[in-house]
Design a protein around this nucleic acid. Structure first.
Lengths: 155, 155
DNA sequence: TATTGTTATACTCTATAACTATA
DNA sequence: TATAGTTATAGAGTATAACAATA
């Protein structure tokens, strides 16, 4: 792919900026996590399962804002890597509780260090004030209620 | 999809923030552009073709950082909508020059207004200083050379 | 030989529909 | 009847390989 410097007509667009920031971070994330045998999405799953006790697949999917069918494949992969175990909930036998194995907890810790180092390097071109502003504004935009949320759960 | 408030373990991740900012903006963009019959990617193509004279498909693809095979389908769709025309370059008959039709120029103007209004609304939760900081830091991160660029054109 | 556009193909991510087992 | 997990399937979006026309 012939890669030019992006023209001003693109870098003034929020859509272009978000997309390419995301793409660049995903690349760096894959590079940083590759030695740990997982990708950024899998790391996020591990982090959520570690942060909340006894989450079912559906509950974890809800926190991650991913579909339950996507969650199946994600847990499959993590189980194959012996980082996560499924067990039926005793209270509700429809539910699969997904929990980290001891190996999974180790992997999470190591991979989180790699992720944090990657993020520091990613933000290195910015002043610390600008980096803080970026994170804060993104949190505000992502956490803020969507227009679609005004009525019901339409998205 | 059961949508929870995202837990802190996710909103502290740059990957999560970029991804969901991008997803939210894409939703709003689709909504804002829908009356104009195009999506954000098509609008970006129109804007690039309008900003540079006599771009070939490959040259436009380079500016947009998309693959030439993707460009074919994109120009196909825009040509079907009679917003863009292909013509063979007289200088190099391998090249297809893609240029806006008069209808395409009108559509670009109208859709750009819709996009700008959408972006203003999207950033409305932020102070104007924060909004400016967000755009500036994103431009810095996206425009800055990637580690992969240090050596050659590997990505 | 290399480049441009094109087509066919495949891969990833995601969502929808339908099935099963439980409730 | 409704819910949780699963499977099959399909739709975006993107990339690779191969081909025709042109350089």
């Amino acid at each position: 792919m012939t890669r030019d410097a992006p023209p001003e007509v693109l870098t003034s667009r929020l859509g272009y900026l978000f997309k390419h920031a995301y793409l660049r971070l995903t690349e760096e994330s894959a590079r940083a996590l590759e030695p740990h045998g997982i990708d950024g999405r899998e790391l996020a799953v591990l982090a959520v399962l570690d942060a909340h006790d006894d989450l079912s697949q559906l509950e974890a999917a809800g926190k991650l804002a991913i579909d339950r069918t996507t969650m199946v494949a994600l847990v499959d992969a993590l189980e194959r890597k012996e980082l996560v175990e499924r067990r039926r909930s005793a209270k509700d036998r429809r539910k699969n509780i997904a929990q980290l194995t001891p190996t999974g907890r180790e992997r999470l810790r190591d991979a989180e260090h790699a992720r944090q180092a990657m993020e520091r390097q990613f933000l290195a071109p910015l002043s610390s004030a600008d980096a803080a502003c970026l994170v804060r504004t993104l949190q505000s935009l992502v956490g803020a209620p969507t227009r679609a949320d005004d009525t019901s759960d339409s998205a």
